[in-house]
């Protein structure tokens, strides 16, 4: 089978190669990483007949411009970023065919924050500790091709085509109008005051502009923290809501460190971590508590 080359003509705002992450090496201090919205990344790979752990391009708000060399199949899932093939609209959540010389571009943000581009075949990219996901540290050394820049080439060994499939839009799109994020009590939950918890769960919060793949911040959210005993560092996970001494909660995301010294007051449910990944700075979210 011939190779397909993705020639990056414009990189976009924050385009990176991701897969399902670098699991099982957290004891060495290695962040999990991987697609922020795991379900959408898997869905895109499914549509082109790839194994679910095949790398994808994670595209954030402002998409790249990609020039294809060779023929193949692709799929775009996750955020609606107005994808166009040779200037003509193409849908999300569907197996698409591209030909040698075609150009993929993105336009206005219709919904969500992160789109995933899957391309059928085996991606010829660097692996570090079993994953192609961009390393949050020293990416240029550890995962050299994970943050494609203008002029870069991504080589993919193409494979036999699969029948074209068309999935109905995912149900999280409707939830984006008023995202309600399910959280569980974290290990230090009991240290929060009842007043703070009651207030937190009855208000909506705007996602701060400084939010990124490591952590989301919530504008104006505040918990009393002065009374909390100093903590000896312990493990954290993507979805852990930490409370630094500032009292402003921090939601750890996929690129977060593996240990931390701040009280872990809440833990976001796995499925809603994907939903949170589709909420962009400026969106407002609310939280509800459930016991494990």
């Amino acid at each position: 089978m011939a190779d397909v080359i993705l020639h990056i003509e414009k990189s976009g705002l924050q385009t990176s190669i991701q897969d399902l992450g670098r699991g099982g090496v957290q004891q060495y201090g290695v962040p999990l990483s991987g697609a922020m919205d795991q379900a959408s990344a898997k869905r895109a790979n499914e549509l082109v007949g790839n194994s679910l752990s095949t790398p994808v391009l994670e595209i954030t708000l402002l998409g790249p411009r990609i020039h294809f060399r060779g023929n193949g199949q692709m799929a775009i899932c996750g955020a609606g970023l107005s994808p166009k093939l040779n200037g003509k609209d193409v849908p999300n959540d569907r197996t698409l065919t591209f030909k040698d010389g075609d150009r993929l571009t993105f336009g206005k943000v219709i919904y969500g924050c992160r789109a995933y581009l899957a391309v059928a075949g085996k991606w010829n990219v660097h692996t570090w500790l079993g994953s192609c996901s961009a390393s949050p540290f020293e990416a240029s050394l550890l995962t050299p091709d994970s943050k494609p820049a203008m002029g870069d080439h991504i080589r993919i060994e193409s494979k036999a085509s699969v029948p074209i499939r068309n999935l109905s839009p995912p149900d999280w799109i409707a939830k984006l109008r008023m995202p309600f994020i399910k959280v569980y009590p974290g290990p230090e939950f009991e240290q929060c005051t009842r007043v703070d918890l009651a207030y937190f769960f009855s208000h909506r919060y705007r996602i701060a502009a400084s939010s990124n793949r490591m952590a989301y911040r919530l504008e104006e959210a505040h918990f009393a923290s002065e009374h909390m005993p100093e903590m000896i560092s312990s493990a954290v996970l993507p979805g852990t809501i930490q409370l630094p001494p500032s009292g402003k909660p921090l939601i750890l995301m996929r690129d977060a460190q593996t240990v931390g010294g701040y009280p872990r007051i809440l833990q976001v449910a796995e499925a809603d971590l994907d939903l949170l990944a589709q909420c962009k700075p400026g969106d407002t979210v609310a939280f509800y508590l459930e016991r494990v």
């Binding site: 699991g23 099982g24 957290q26 004891q27 000896i232 560092s233 312990s234 493990a235 996970l237 240990v259």
Partner: peptide, 14 residues
């Protein structure tokens, strides 16, 4: 078992 994260006086087991 998906991961194990040891720390000073705790162990997180996935």
């Amino acid at each position: 078992i998906t991961f194990i994260i040891p720390a000073y006086c705790s162990l997180l087991v996935g």
